[in-house]
């Protein structure tokens, strides 16, 4: 397959039941589907030429709620961000899905892009966002018996007490 040559297909805006769109930074198109629209939109984007899911990560917006979202999209605590890449069209697009705190569950896109397997596991490990239909959703970076999800904003970073050489003794 020669992905470098444009094959003349044109990518229209996917019209999956009114997915909110917004040109994001640097003229990268952004899609803001709801959780129900998410997998359909991904499948449609794949069919329209985005061959590769380059990146998938989550963001915890606990302490930064006031971000810019298109109308009709309720900001939630978690956001799953997928960056897609079209090799034939040399284009990128970004899909951002809101995931609420009290029900952090979202469909896995493993069925569309096999390559997100490790990235979804990382998002689960770091944020506790559960991806349904993932082949084996287990922790990937942290030990299996670890408690908590480290990249959440309410997860303490801990600190090492400064030890002075000749500090005053306990009073």
């Amino acid at each position: 397959m020669d992905a470098g040559s444009a094959d003349g297909r044109s990518i229209g805006n996917p019209q999956v039941s009114n997915v909110a769109t917004q040109p994001a930074l640097n003229a990268v198109e952004g899609y803001f589907p709801t959780r129900e629209q998410y997998l359909d939109l991904i499948n449609q984007l794949k069919a329209e030429g985005f061959e590769m899911a380059v990146d998938l990560c989550a963001v915890d917006y606990l302490s930064h709620p006031g971000r810019e979202l298109p109308e009709g999209i309720t900001p939630e605590r978690f956001e799953v961000v997928v960056n897609l890449l079209s090799l034939s069209q040399r284009r990128r697009c970004r899909v951002r899905v809101q995931v609420p705190e009290n029900d952090p569950v979202i469909t896995s896109i493993f069925s569309a892009y096999v390559g997100v397997e490790a990235m979804e596991r990382e998002a689960y490990d770091m944020f506790g966002v559960v991806f349904t239909d993932h082949p084996s959703l287990s922790r990937i970076l942290m030990p299996e018996d670890w408690e908590g999800h480290p990249l959440r904003k309410d997860y303490g970073i801990g600190r090492v007490p400064v030890q002075f050489k000749e500090g005053p003794g306990p009073r």
Binding site: M1, D2, A3, G4, E51, M52, A53, V54, L87, Y113, V114, G115, V116
Partner: peptide, 18 residues
């Protein structure tokens, strides 16, 4: 390679000039 999101020399070794 494309399905697995591979990039770099792994992808180019399959003939994709990316």
């Amino acid at each position: 390679a494309i399905a697995l999101s591979l990039t770099g020399p792994l992808l180019r070794s399959t003939g994709v000039p990316w």
